[in-house]
Computed example of a mutant assay.
Amino acid sequence: MRKLVVAISMLAFAGSAAFADPIIDRQALMKERGKIVGGLAKVAKGEDAFDAGAVLTQLQALQANAEKFDVDALFPKGSDVGDTTAGPKIWEDTVGFKAVEDKYLSNVKAAVAAPPADVDALKAQVGAIGSDCGTCHQGYRVKKG
């Protein structure tokens, strides 16, 4: 019982600590997102074997990640300075930024709702999702270096 109370307390603390540092939090979400998309891309390219169950699990993880992406909490005013590659256009065109993220979430949800049966179907889904990533990175991100 004591372990259960400790576990619940830790979850409550973790929930309250969510988005404590928006720059660190959004970078963590994006790193997670990149890792998942990278895994899917390896399968789409034929570098890893296609396993429908594993692909669906990755797509579900991608959806969970996308659903945590709260633009207002992750990009509050003042979080444009510091160790970040978030471009000023995010705050200048928040509506457009949210629209790009909404399209991305929609494409991820569609992929989960109709999981690919083969590599060719996965390629199409990864292409749509990757296009959304590219749109955001080109328009709303500052390149380092």
Rank of each mutant, 00 (worst) to 15 (best):
G46P: 07
A73K: 14
A54D: 09
A64L: 13
Q125H: 04
C136Q: 06
A64W: 05
V100S: 10
S79Y: 00
S106E: 14
G82N: 07
G127D: 00
G82Q: 06
Q60A: 13
I24F: 15
K31T: 06
A44N: 05
A7G: 01
V142S: 09
V95W: 05
G34Q: 04
V95E: 14
I8Y: 10
A111S: 13
E101Y: 13
F69E: 04
Q27P: 01
G53Q: 09
T94S: 06
V119A: 12
V6R: 11
K35R: 15
L74E: 00
Q58A: 15
G96D: 03
A111C: 06
G130D: 03
K3M: 10
M1C: 10
D132V: 00
G39I: 02
P76V: 02
V71G: 04
K77C: 01
V142K: 11
V108N: 02
L4S: 10
A12F: 12
A61L: 12
L122V: 07
F75W: 11
L56V: 08
R33F: 10
R2M: 13
K35V: 09
D70Y: 03
G39Q: 13
T57E: 13
S79L: 07
A86N: 05
V112N: 08
S131F: 12
G53L: 10
T57A: 15
K109C: 04
M10I: 14
P116R: 03
D70A: 08
Y140W: 09
F50L: 06
P76T: 02
G15S: 10
A44Q: 03
T84W: 06
T84M: 05
F69L: 04
A117S: 10
W91I: 00
E101A: 09
H137D: 00
K89G: 05
T135L: 11
Y140F: 14
G15M: 15
V112P: 03
V5P: 01
F75L: 10
E92K: 11
A17E: 00
V6S: 07
A114Q: 13
T85D: 12
Q138V: 02
W91E: 08
V71T: 12
G15T: 01
D118S: 02
Q60R: 14
P88V: 13
G145M: 10
A73H: 00
G134V: 06
K123W: 04
D70N: 12
A7E: 04
G139C: 06
D21H: 03
V5T: 10
A99K: 13
V55D: 05
V95Q: 12
W91K: 10
S131K: 15
V81F: 11
T84V: 08
H137W: 00
G46M: 06
G87S: 11
A64F: 12
